[in-house]
Every structure is written in C-alpha cells, then in structure tokens.
Amino acid sequence: MTTPTDATRDTVRAYHHARFRGDAPAAARTLAETFRFRSPLTTSDDADGHLAGLDMFVSIVERVDLISELYAEDRATLVYDVHTTIPTVGVQHTAEHFRLSDGRITDIHLIFDAGPWHAVMRAIPQP
C-alpha cells in the first residue's frame, strides 16, 4: 500500500533525478501549477523560470552525492553535495526543502553558501 509519505518521496526523487539529468520536461511534471523557488542566488514564481538555466547548471555538475532524505506527507528535505567542474566552487554542500500539495511540488527552498558563486555569476554575460 502506498502511503502519502511514499508519494512525496516518489515525487521529490523524480524531480531530483530529472533535474540532475537535465530533463526539464520531466522535472516540470513534478511541479504544481502554482510554484515558487527560492535560493541564495535567484527566485522564481513559476516552473519555466526555475528550470530556464537548467542546461547551463547541469553542464558544470560532475556528480551529486545524496547524503540524507527526510519525508513527510506534504514536505521533504534532501541534503546533498554537488561536485562541480568549477575550481572556485568545488563541492557545493546543499539542503533543499520541498513543500507539496496534491502530489506536486509547490515550493522549493534551496540552501547553500553562495559566496563562491558570486564571481561565476558576474562572469556570465547578461542579456
């Protein structure tokens, strides 16, 4: 029998795996119509805005080591290390908190030390 916590785990894992594969359509399918993303570097109030830079981000990821997964009926937290190809960033220690409603992710709050990313962000040409 599938419990609400199992459903939360399945949704969050599907999002996490799709995101780090660079599969924006699969990641978007896990997100609710009303969605908000917050991180130290960016915020977005919709799935398209959140996933817009996914290809660029995934291109600098060597691997992701999942450290911990915590699940409840309407929320989850993942703790993981993102190993990047950028020497000044190296390994990004990350916590990601999710809120869900009706089996879809409504809110993601990404927590990490943004300090090493400031020089990287300044080097990206702005439109």
Results as ranks from 00 to 15, higher is better:
Ile124Cys: 06
Tyr80Thr: 02
Phe98Asp: 01
Ala27Gln: 05
Asp65Lys: 11
Ile111Ser: 10
Leu51Cys: 08
Val120Lys: 03
Tyr71Arg: 00
Thr106Phe: 03
Ala119Val: 14
His109Trp: 11
Asp65Met: 00
Leu66Ser: 09
Ser68Trp: 00
Asp10Trp: 00
Thr106Met: 06
Ala26Phe: 04
Gly115Asn: 05
Ala123Ser: 15
Arg36Ser: 11
Thr94Ile: 04
Thr8Asn: 09
Phe98Arg: 04
Thr5Ile: 14
Ser39Leu: 07
Glu62Gln: 14
His16Lys: 04
His50Cys: 08
Ser39Met: 10
Ala95Glu: 03
Ser68Glu: 11
Thr8Gln: 04
Pro4Tyr: 12
Thr88Glu: 13
Phe98Val: 01
Ala7Cys: 04
Arg36His: 14
Ala27Asn: 07
Asp23Ser: 07
Ala24Asn: 07
Arg38His: 14
Tyr80Cys: 01
Pro4Glu: 05
Asp46Lys: 06
Leu54Ala: 05
Ser59Tyr: 11
Arg104Ser: 09
Arg19His: 13
Ser59Glu: 06
Asp23Lys: 07
Arg36Ile: 01
Glu96Met: 09
Glu33Gly: 13
Asp46Pro: 12
Glu96Arg: 05
His16Pro: 00
Ala32Met: 06
Arg122Gln: 14
Asp107Ser: 15
Arg75Cys: 06
Asp45Phe: 10
Phe112Gln: 05
Val12Asn: 01
Ala76Met: 03
Arg63Ile: 02
Pro87Leu: 06
Leu100Trp: 01
Ser59Cys: 10
Met121Ile: 14
Val89Asp: 04
Val89Ala: 09
Glu73Asp: 14
Thr43Asp: 15
Asp6Pro: 04
Arg38Asn: 09
Leu100Arg: 01
His118Ile: 14
Leu66Asn: 09
Arg19Ile: 02
Gly90Thr: 08
Asp46Val: 08
